[in-house]
């Protein structure tokens, strides 16, 4: 006979089951493969700095068993075992760490590595975000796959709100020409197949080289001058001295609007070319440079 108490207990058990993190199950990865997990993975190896950042962002730091050489953020990741650089992975190292899940990127990690790992019986989940919003979706997805707490999804949602806020604030405003320099010598920029370009567009600017055929084209100085950019953003891993030199170089060319108005800025490349949580920080910084007339709130 069902008493109200047993009903209550039954309901409680049912709810408890439902409230458990939904990490058991099958997930479709970026390559269309299905990855099946029995429970939340306890030993995760990240094959890209952006993935490392996402894992820590999701509160999964302790479960990270291995990271790539340049996974330098957050600082806690520096102490983790290294599996090589993300273009040059050490398969033996990965296998020896006995991971129950390896998270890879389609763009960057080589297919042969992924296939070798799978042949060795290791589960590999691939991601392939191609723009900012896809990156934020990836954060939420990884939260699911790895069995992060519900904070993961919420945090990803919060990031989305910030990004949409930026897009909203610049809606309808005229788009300044933004030249993005990712290498000093030779001068290299980005086309529309890159995160940087997506950021510039979202931040209310326009990239004069977005239609170039290659992702990271080399452009002559003359051509940059000819385009007369309004803002120059130097996104380079070389900080300090080289940026100052680059800045001086641009400011010499007074005929360019960006030089005339002193709008040559350094932007941290880690913030703008990785599909990680900090990309929204990058977006906000870019927006501040591109539309300084908007009263942005300082973080």
């Amino acid at each position: 006979m069902l008493s109200s108490r047993s009903l209550f207990i039954g309901l409680f058990i049912l709810v408890a089951f439902m409230a458990r993190p939904a990490s058991a199950g099958a997930f479709r990865d970026a390559l269309g493969r299905t990855v099946t997990l029995d429970g939340p993975p306890r030993r995760i190896v990240s094959l890209a700095p952006s993935i490392t950042e996402i894992l820590y962002f999701l509160g999964l730091g302790e479960r990270v068993a291995g990271v790539t050489q340049y996974s330098t953020y957050p600082p806690a990741a520096l102490g983790k075992p290294k599996v090589g650089s993300y273009v040059n992975l050490n398969i033996e190292r990965i296998i020896s760490l006995a991971p129950d899940l390896v998270i890879a990127t389609v763009d960057g990690n080589s297919r042969s590595v992924i296939e070798t790992l799978e042949a060795a019986g290791i589960q590999v989940f691939t991601t392939n975000p191609r723009n900012l919003f896809e990156a934020l979706d990836t954060i939420a997805l990884l939260g699911q796959v790895c069995g992060a707490t519900r904070d993961g999804a919420a945090a990803a949602e919060a990031l989305k709100v910030r990004a949409e806020d930026v897009a909203e604030k610049v809606r309808g405003l005229p788009r300044p020409k933004v030249f993005v320099q990712i290498n000093l010598r030779p001068i290299m920029t980005v086309n529309r197949d890159t995160f940087l370009n997506d950021l510039i567009t979202l931040a209310g600017g326009s990239n004069p080289f977005s239609e170039e055929p290659f992702a990271y084209p080399r452009i002559s100085l003359e051509e940059v001058i000819r385009q007369r950019p309004d803002v120059i953003l130097v996104s380079s891993m070389d900080r300090g001295g080289r940026f100052e030199e680059a800045r001086r170089e641009w400011l010499r060319l007074e005929d360019i609007p960006a030089a005339r108005n002193g709008r040559v800025h350094l932007i941290d490349s880690d913030l703008v070319d990785r599909p990680s949580p900090r990309i929204v920080d990058g977006l906000e910084e870019a927006a501040r440079f591109i539309h300084p007339e908007i009263p942005w709130e300082r973080p």
Binding site: P186, I187, M237, D238
Partner: peptide, 19 residues
């Protein structure tokens, strides 16, 4: 060497007069 340095190094090695 890493990616960005690599470009710069190779460009120097190939001989370049820009800038």
């Amino acid at each position: 060497s890493t990616d960005s340095r690599l470009h710069t190094m190779l460009f120097w090695l190939y001989g370049d007069l820009s800038q």
